[in-house]
Design a protein around this nucleic acid. Structure first.
Lengths: 246, 246
DNA sequence: CCCCATTTGTTCGTATGTATG
DNA sequence: TCATACATACGAACAAATGGG
């Protein structure tokens, strides 16, 4: 009982697309069996036999799917359905930012613009949807930032959690993951701006303003706070641009 | 003169991360030499020699980078820097949609929501930024849709161009590419809704309304038109959900 | 048009590292 | 400690595609 149905089962008449066949074969296997993230896939050997391809071809195909988080490989353990996250977007965009970052920082600029656009456009739904527990958590994160800033420590993770929490009331996984992805891209690319000393206390204060606006359920105030939140990074980008022009 | 500086140049003391080293090696090579999309990379043999890895390992690493469009391979020709597009996002999201699509269509629902949010949030900048030539092009696309609809033909490409053109005045490549990516994901996943007959003439009419609102530089009207534009697909999704519940 | 060199695509065999019991 | 199952890595050979003489 073959696990796969290959268009060219055993006989390999024409070639030039072996790996592609393997890729669609694995994809179809997952779809056909309605597998969920974490479910086990056949071993490499079984895949080879089922599709009729060599280990190398299967491995390269698996590596491709692994890069897209469609498949996840655990060394010495087995192959499983991946988390279907947006890590590929992060990898791709971050590299783009690093590559063009040395010249101009327009990728970083655009990422910031997208982040601001999303938070701006969802401000109304955010203020309307946040429950009391989420508001408390937002305030707690903001005060945590202030305390870290007072100690001179950075608070990258708090910042990440804060912006993620803002999107939680929407109940849209995709928006949450996009938020996380763009945040991560910015975190990776921003350091290429040079020794930019982000004023920790100012940053913390801006997040307090965000939390307060959200707590007041004041959409207008939240939009203003969002704009202000991204002003410092925008300024750093412009400064880096100006420094390059000189 | 070695092209790469490998932490473990020739000696392979420990293993378990060979391919990862190759990946970062290739990435660093591109970054160090400030290569742009389309620029040639060393051949596989040269990469093997430079990094000190076997050809299989190099190939698997290249396949990973190829999936992210960081590298592009042309059979019998060579390896080049990739277009750094968002194809990885499309692949990943589309597969997610297809996988969960059979059960519920919440991925498709969220993609539609993201598209609408973006167009909604940028409506003001769109009406303000469109020049006369772009407005003419928008109207031409809309009338083209009407004509196609009258002939009973679909107009997928016109639709794609329309939504892409809407974002052009922003001058933000990332937003344009995200728009194209989400459009494509929807185009791939939507057919799983079942034999849903999208009313061509109604769809064309909705785009005429979009073009008119944009031409009038009426942000409010554009936002209404955007909402209306996504109502049919939202309805289809709800219908599919209801059909499943029964 | 054919031939040939270059380069990637595919395969096999073998050896090694890793996790589980 | 051993054994099993699995992924990882390497190297060599051959096939296929591309481009130029």
């Amino acid at each position: 009982m073959p696990v796969f149905e290959t268009t060219t089962p055993p006989a390999n008449g024409r070639s030039g697309a072996r790996r592609q066949e393997v890729i669609v074969g694995i994809k179809e296997y997952i779809l056909r069996n309605q597998l969920k993230p974490g479910d086990p896939l056949p071993t490499e050997s079984e895949l080879c036999e089922a599709i009729g391809a060599s280990r190398s071809s299967v491995r390269e195909a698996v590596k491709t799917l692994s890069a897209l988080d469609i498949v996840e490989v655990r060394h010495g353990h087995g192959t499983y359905v991946g988390g279907l996250s947006l890590t590929a977007l992060v990898e791709s965009l971050a590299f783009r930012g690093l590559l063009s970052g040395e010249a101009d920082h327009h990728v970083l600029e655009q990422v910031v613009e997208v982040r601001e656009t999303i938070e701006q456009g969802l401000a109304a739904q955010i203020t309307a949807g946040l429950d009391d527990g989420q508001l408390d958590a937002l305030r707690a994160l903001a005060t945590g930032m202030c305390e870290s800033a007072a100690r001179g420590e950075d608070f990258l993770d708090l910042d990440r959690q804060f912006h993620l929490l803002l999107m939680e009331p929407l109940g849209n996984d995709l928006i949450e993951q996009l938020t996380a992805a763009f945040w991560e891209v910015q975190a990776i690319v921003a350091p290429t701006l040079g020794q930019s000393p982000p004023d920790l206390r100012e940053t913390a204060r801006l997040h307090v303003a965000l939390a307060e606006a959200a707590a007041a359920r004041d959409t207008q105030a939240l939009q203003v706070a969002v704009t202000n939140h991204y002003l410092p990074i925008r300024g750093l980008i412009q400064a880096a641009k100006a420094a390059k022009a000189s």
